[in-house]
Structures are given as C-alpha cells and as structure tokens.
Write a protein that binds this DNA or RNA. Structure first.
Ligand code: MN
Ligand code: MN
Ligand code: ZN
Ligand code: ZN
Lengths: 126, 126
DNA sequence: TTGCAATTGCAACATAGTTGCATTAATTTT
DNA sequence: AAAATTAATGCAACTATGTTGCAATTGCAA
C-alpha cells in the first residue's frame, strides 16, 4: 500500500513535483529537503508515491534513480510509460511523449522497455 | 590508453568473454575471478578493455553495470551500438542486433541511446 | 639481466540505497 | 476532547557498487 497519511513530509515532497513538471533525481530531492526530513524518509515517500501511481521512476544516464510526475496513473493502473531524454551538458531529464516502435524479437516476449535518449536539450542545443 | 601489457589477470578476464559470447555483470565477473584477482583489478581491466573497443558496457535493469564483447570495434572507433534484452526471470542479458528507429525530437539533438528491453528470454518463455 | 613503467593488491574511502527499532504524529475510536 | 491505534519518521548502522592513493610486483624492451 502507498500513502495513507498526509504528513508534512509527504506534502513537502508532493509540492516539489507539483510546482514544476520536471524530473528529479533522488539525490537532488534529498538535497532539496535535507533540512526538513531524513533521507530514509525521502526514499520511503517516493516509494509510496510510486505505488500510488502519483510518480514514476527510472534510471538516468549514470545509473542514478530519477522520479517524475505521472499522468493518468493510479495505484492499480500504471499506464504512463514513455522514453526519457537526458541532456549530456546540463543533466536535465525530460519525459518524452513520443512512441518508439519496438520490433518483435524471435522467441522472446518483450514486456517492458527502458529507453533513455541522450544528447543536448533545448537550452544547451544552441 | 587501454591494455598495454598482457598480464595473467587480463588473459583471465578476456577468456571469460571469449569462451562464451554472453554479457556479464561486473558483480558476477568479480565473483567469477575472486580467487585470482582483486575487485579493483577487475574494474580496471574492464575499463581498459572498453577503451580498446574489445568490450562495451551498459546498465542492466537494476542499474548494475554489464559488459559484453564488441564486434568490429577498435580503440578509436566504437561502432557496435545496439539495444539489450534482459530476462526478468533468469536475469540473463543479450545483445540485440536489431535496429530501433528513434524519431527526431524538436529542438533536441539526440547523440546516443540506451535501450533495454525486458521480458522473457528464449529459455524462460515456455 | 636490468631497469622502468604498467599493473596489481590492499586498505581506505565515497556514495546510493536499505533495515531495524524506538519515537512521533496522523487519524480513528471512545 | 482525550485516548488509542498504527502509519510514518529519525537515526544509526548496515550493504553494495564503485573509486583512489600508494607501495609492491611484474611484463617487457633494451
Ligand atoms: Mn517520465
Ligand atoms: Mn551489447
Ligand atoms: Zn541541457
Ligand atoms: Zn530467462
């Protein structure tokens, strides 16, 4: 089960995702709220928010865990699957709403995909 | 620069990749050779072999680092880019020789991709 | 052989993430 | 409104992957 009590810590974390629709690494999140709560709490809240379909997680280019807001997901229906883009210059991560076609692989059953595109973001492109 | 001296340790690691064309996680490799060399040595050898275009690395589903033999790469030309498949049941990883088409993204410059497909492998499919 | 630089082992470190347990605080019950 | 219940938190200790500095070893060329 996910979030049951709306504590101050939960509200703080939620606010971060609400106020700006941007992916955040756990490391960055911990840094952001380090005066307000323990890192263990951050990990646990993120866990529970993910279970509830409020946020989703994925791995960035260096293997770190990132989270971003879900759109149209719930505790029993995680539908918001998509590739991500990480800028090699500023490290920013974006959720991409593009569809990438995966060809079927002989004798294999592909159930999910983990796609990270890397390069230069809009800002760093120039 | 990569491998300069063909030491016993280098030979041991190379043999593992030669005898079976299969991706290996660093954790597994360290375990495999733990009586023969230090883990630091394993990390450093893998590093140098990658620089030489003998092997390539990528992240598995749990964020762990994996390595597999390269085909047709050299120190100054790493061409063997491809998606990977990891079985969710037996954890085995395969290099895929399929092409996945990445649509261009407005105002972004995609320079590389990191694609991991997950599901059931040939053995676990049944 | 000898000399030297590449390689290795080792211990200590860095960082991400997890766990157990006592304490605190939301929320429900009385 | 107070008490009871139990989810949530803080903290310290831990695990795991990966890195670094440095002294000792070893491959190889001269
Ligand atoms: Mn996303
Ligand atoms: Mn591969
Ligand atoms: Zn950027
Ligand atoms: Zn399998």
């Amino acid at each position: 089960m996910g979030i049951i009590r709306k504590t101050k810590a939960v509200t703080t974390v939620l606010q971060i995702f609400e106020e700006k629709n941007e992916a955040k690494s756990v490391v960055h999140l911990i840094e952001l709220v380090k005066d307000k709560m323990n890192k263990t709490t951050v990990y646990r809240i993120l866990d529970r928010l993910e279970q509830d379909g409020v946020i989703h997680s994925f791995n960035g280019k260096d293997g770190l865990k990132w989270y971003a807001k879900c759109e149209g997901c719930s505790a029993n229906h995680h539908s918001d699957k998509h590739p991500h883009f990480q800028c090699t210059e500023c490290d920013k991560v974006e959720c991409l709403s593009i569809e990438i076609n995966i060809p079927s692989i002989k004798n294999h059953k592909v159930e999910s995909t983990d796609i990270l595109l890397m390069g230069q973001c809009e800002v760093c492109c120039v």
